[in-house]
């Protein structure tokens, strides 16, 4: 059995109009150390799947098994970067991370502070450590959330659109940071991330999971990215393999979105 096994996963929400099935028939086997991207249109159930892995949601059908243990709730083996940062507004940047580290890690106070500082420096926020989240830009908040998830040193990193609010430059350097961290840990950390960005998915991932549109969304295709690592962002885009993959993904994500499909007719 693989490291992280999602089997016949179904998640539905009770709504006033009855049961709303967000995702169903999700089957996915993830190896230890793999980087997986989930890609799909807004509302197709990406966050839902990730929350099931994170243990924030209980599946209404099927199971999620991590390291041979059925996931029943959140745990220190998984670090989550939420889509909306989820920082506590009354705690400083430093304290936001420290509370998570203090809660999860089993070491001395001094070591915990060291971990916090190290991760703050990694996301380039050390000089902002005494600010409150309300005094940060969206991108900075996102970096705090990333630092917080990294700081607890989890085996599985779950990132829900972690670079969505970042400008192109910061985004690029954060992507490299993630890869650096992954390499430093002998590529043993498993990363599952959600993204809207095809280029980002291709640059980072081993496999890309493309979802159908909801409701009752299923997996449309799992695309394997067989590009050699380390990948050079500038060189890689010129290779025929990359171009083929990119076109294929673009096709998967946009073929229902031609102008005719949207009911627009063009008059001469």
């Amino acid at each position: 059995m693989s490291y992280l096994e999602i089997k016949d996963l179904e998640i539905s929400f009770p709504t006033p109009k009855g049961k709303y099935i967000a995702v169903r028939d999700i089957n996915l086997s993830i190896r230890k150390g793999e980087i997986i991207s989930i890609i799909g249109h807004s509302g197709c159930g990406k966050s839902t799947i990730m929350n099931a892995i994170g243990g924030m949601l209980t599946p209404t059908g099927g199971s999620v098994v991590l390291d041979n243990k059925n996931i029943k709730g959140p745990g220190p083996d998984r670090g989550i970067v939420f889509q909306n940062y989820s920082l506590l507004p009354w705690l400083t940047v430093e304290n936001n991370i420290f509370q998570a580290v203090d809660s999860v890690m089993d070491c001395s106070k001094a070591e915990k502070h060291e971990i916090v500082i190290k991760n703050l420096k990694m996301v380039n926020l050390f000089q902002h450590k005494d600010k409150l989240p309300g005094q940060l830009s969206g991108g900075m908040k996102q970096r705090v959330a990333i630092a917080r998830a990294f700081a607890i040193n989890p085996g599985v990193l779950l990132m829900d659109e972690p670079f969505g609010a970042l400008d192109a430059l910061t985004k690029g350097s954060m992507q490299l940071e993630v890869l650096k961290l992954w390499n430093l840990n002998n590529r043993e950390k498993t990363i599952v991330m959600i993204t809207h960005d095809i280029e980002e998915a291709l640059f980072l991932s081993d496999r890309i999971v493309v979802l159908h549109n909801g409701p009752a969304s299923t997996i449309r295709e799992i695309v394997t990215v067989n590009l050699p690592r380390p990948r050079n962002k500038i060189e890689i885009v010129k290779t025929p393999e990359y171009i083929e993959l990119r076109d294929h993904l673009l096709h998967l994500l946009t073929d229902h979105f031609s102008i005719e499909d949207m009911g627009v007719t063009y008059k001469n």
């Binding site: 994170g54 924030m56 709730g73 959140p74 939420f82 989820s86 509370q99 203090d102 809660s103």
Partner: peptide, 16 residues
């Protein structure tokens, strides 16, 4: 819910 999620995801104790 966001604040509750933080506590849940990072295993905050009742006191924390």
């Amino acid at each position: 819910q966001d604040h509750k999620n933080v506590a849940k995801a990072f295993g905050f104790s009742k006191w924390r």
